[in-house]
Write a protein that binds this DNA or RNA. Structure first.
Length: 568
RNA sequence: CGGAGCGUAGCACAGCCUGGUUAGUGCGCCUGCUUUGGGAGCAGGAGGUCGAGUGUUCGAAUCACUCCGCUCCGACCA
């Protein structure tokens, strides 16, 4: 490609809308432009990268036995109602109506669609296992699109769906995808590592997320240095808080006055001086059907995903102050577990043996001390509800750390939920009706693109890994006189490199050298060949290695072979 | 959805508080000359319904109200 024949609008300054570096470089390097919040146009250089990532994904999916299909982005709401996700995923569903007023959905994912294919097309165990995948545009009505392609409302995703005759077979399919993901990210030059994950709104039992550590990631990963444990914060469990929960039995519950105390922290201060770990945090949520109460140690925080498991529904919200008053008869700040009737109370495991605790009296301005959980509270449902914190130990005694990461892929073993909902069954060897065990595997293609930028750049711009660079080599001709020696040599090397199978761009723009150098580094071509009359005078050209900054002077006629050697 | 900030040329911004020539600066763009190995110089030029609407006023980019859009924070932390 000759640069003058393509379109790469680079920017000297970063647009104000871009906050994080990968978003800024995405725009500055002329890869993409924003149409509206969370909606982007990919320009020629961006498309090149995207296509290279997609090619790697296709290759590895095919190698893993995946069969490519393409499903509609527009979907009928009925199948979503059948799976129950019309309600469960309501907040991210893009709804549109046609000219007759009929409602449609823009698909955020395709479990329902593939399950309906399975329901009509798969009828025998002989057809299994099978794994369909597609690379397609998805739509999610994100409450807050952010960071360019990281959290967009329209984005490209590879999604795959496996169907197996048994749970055991499904695990084999799962592992194949897991391994394929490892290879895909590796080939993209990304250090993505798998962590145990929550299954959330998808349902299912077994799940891993592929995470790329990055300051600006939106997920938090809990891990140990020795690599023996890694999990999404939503899923993570530890052996418990660093300090053990007080369990010294004391006298009977006793009310005391706590005017103006509104928070756990207020109560830790004089004149009360009650450490947070000695308090019971009382939270009120409203689920689909009813209000529920959650108890935690005062210094612990609730984990949303774990609450969803305990509540047996992902649909819940925090209660409003007047709803809290209805349930407990007091305002936030004076809430406690004593005397609760007719409301389900979920308590974190940490409280099971707790004694001598302090909590609100459910009377504004009062708290109670000497609460002994076993003695004073009945009917609690105990489970793990707390969020893990840095420094706690795993069950193996390893201290955990937390780091921010970008989720670039997510694999699930789903079970039979969708097949049952869409009535996709098959007959097994004995002629018995069975539901296939399904798995689904998402990989954010556009997000991966930006994650690579986020992980691979310096102050001058992007540093593309060879495998996905828009062009692998940029030939920077410093004099573009068509019949001049510089352009002649540039043209020769260009032809040789093309013949060698490289993806090459020839910068033939009539611009000053500085601009060409800066642009090539901003866009991040792995190699640049600089050709100007100065070096040519001695019969040389300069090879610049973007990643290392190394500059190599080589004779013109050896340029192509040297590059071949460097890239081998 | 709640809070905060911002919308002025393709991009980055000034002007607004305290209303009053023809709305500015830098980058980019076009023309010409010069320059040519790290975002050049000179000269000339194009490009703006000042986000939209309504109101106040003799007069609105500037003041008020409404709406729209963008960005950030929050949306379990009692």
């Amino acid at each position: 490609m000759r640069w003058s024949n393509t379109f790469i609008p680079t920017l000297k300054e970063a647009p104000a809308e871009a906050e994080i570096v990968s978003h800024q470089l995405l725009l500055r390097a002329g890869l993409a432009r924003k149409l509206a919040g969370g909606l982007y146009t990919f320009l020629p250089a961006g498309i090149k990268v995207l296509q290279k990532i997609e090619a790697i994904v296709r290759e590895e999916m095919n190698k893993a036995g995946g069969l490519e299909v393409l499903m509609p982005a527009v979907q009928p709401p009925e199948i979503w109602k059948a799976s129950g996700r019309y309600e469960h995923a309501a907040d991210v569903l893009f709804k549109v109506s046609d000219s007759k007023g009929r409602e449609w959905l823009l698909g955020p994912t395709h479990e329902e669609v593939i399950a309906s294919i399975a329901s009509t097309e798969i009828s025998s165990y002989r057809q299994l296992p099978v794994n369909f995948y597609q690379i397609q545009t998805k739509f999610r009505d994100e409450i807050r699109p952010r960071f360019g392609l990281m959290r967009a409302r329209e984005f490209i995703m590879k999604d795959a769906y496996s169907f197996d005759v048994s749970d055991g077979d499904a695990l084999v399919s799962y592992q194949k995808m897991y391994d394929a993901y490892v290879r895909i990210f590796d080939r993209c030059g990304l250090h993505a590592f798998p962590v145990e994950a929550d299954t959330g709104v998808m349902g299912g039992s077994h799940s891993h997320e592929f995470m790329v550590p990055a300051e600006n990631g939106e997920s938090e990963v809990v891990y140990t240095e020795d690599g023996s444990y890694s999990a999404n914060l939503e899923k993570a469990v530890s052996a418990g808080p660093c300090s053990s929960t007080p369990n010294k039995c004391t006298g009977s519950p006793e009310e005391f006055e706590t005017p103006r105390v509104k928070t756990i922290e207020d109560l830790t201060k004089p004149p009360f001086n009650v450490p947070a770990m000695l308090q019971i945090k009382t939270l009120v949520f409203i689920t689909e059907k009813e209000p529920v109460i959650v108890l935690l140690r005062g210094d612990d925080e609730a984990n949303e995903a774990k609450l969803a498991v305990a509540f047996r529904t992902p649909i819940y919200r925090t209660a409003e102050p007047d709803e809290i008053k209805d349930v407990l008869g007091a305002s936030p700040g004076s809430l406690g577990p004593l005397g609760i009737k007719g409301v389900k109370v979920f308590a974190d495991n940490q409280l099971e043996e707790a004694a001598g605790m302090v909590a609100g009296a459910n009377k504004d301005g009062f708290h109670k001390r000497n609460i002994n959980v076993k003695r004073d509270l009945q009917g609690l449902v105990f489970s793990d509800l707390r969020a893990v914190r840095e420094g706690e130990l795993t069950s193996d005694g390893q201290p955990v750390k937390i780091k921010r990461s970008i989720e670039v892929g997510h694999v699930f073993k789903l079970g039979t939920k969708y097949c049952k909902a869409l009535d996709a069954s098959f007959l097994d060897e004995s002629g018995k009706k069975q539901f296939p065990v399904m798995g689904c595997y998402g990989l954010g293609v556009t997000r991966t693109l930006q994650a690579i930028i986020e992980c691979s750049h310096d102050e001058n711009g992007i540093m593309w890994p060879m495998a996905i660079a828009p062009w692998q080599i940029c030939i920077t001709a410093l004099d573009i006189e068509p019949d001049g020696p510089v352009m002649k040599s540039a043209g020769e090397i260009y032809g040789q490199l093309l013949d060698l199978g490289f993806d090459v761009i020839l910068d033939d723009r009539d611009l000053r050298p500085g601009i060409k150098f800066k642009d090539s580094e901003l866009i991040g071509f792995p190699l640049r060949v600089g050709i100007g009359s100065k070096s040519l005078k001695d019969g040389n050209v300069e090879i610049f290695v973007r990643a290392s900054g190394e500059k190599i002077t080589v004779p013109v006629d050896q340029a192509a072979s040297r590059i071949k050697a460097i890239l081998a």
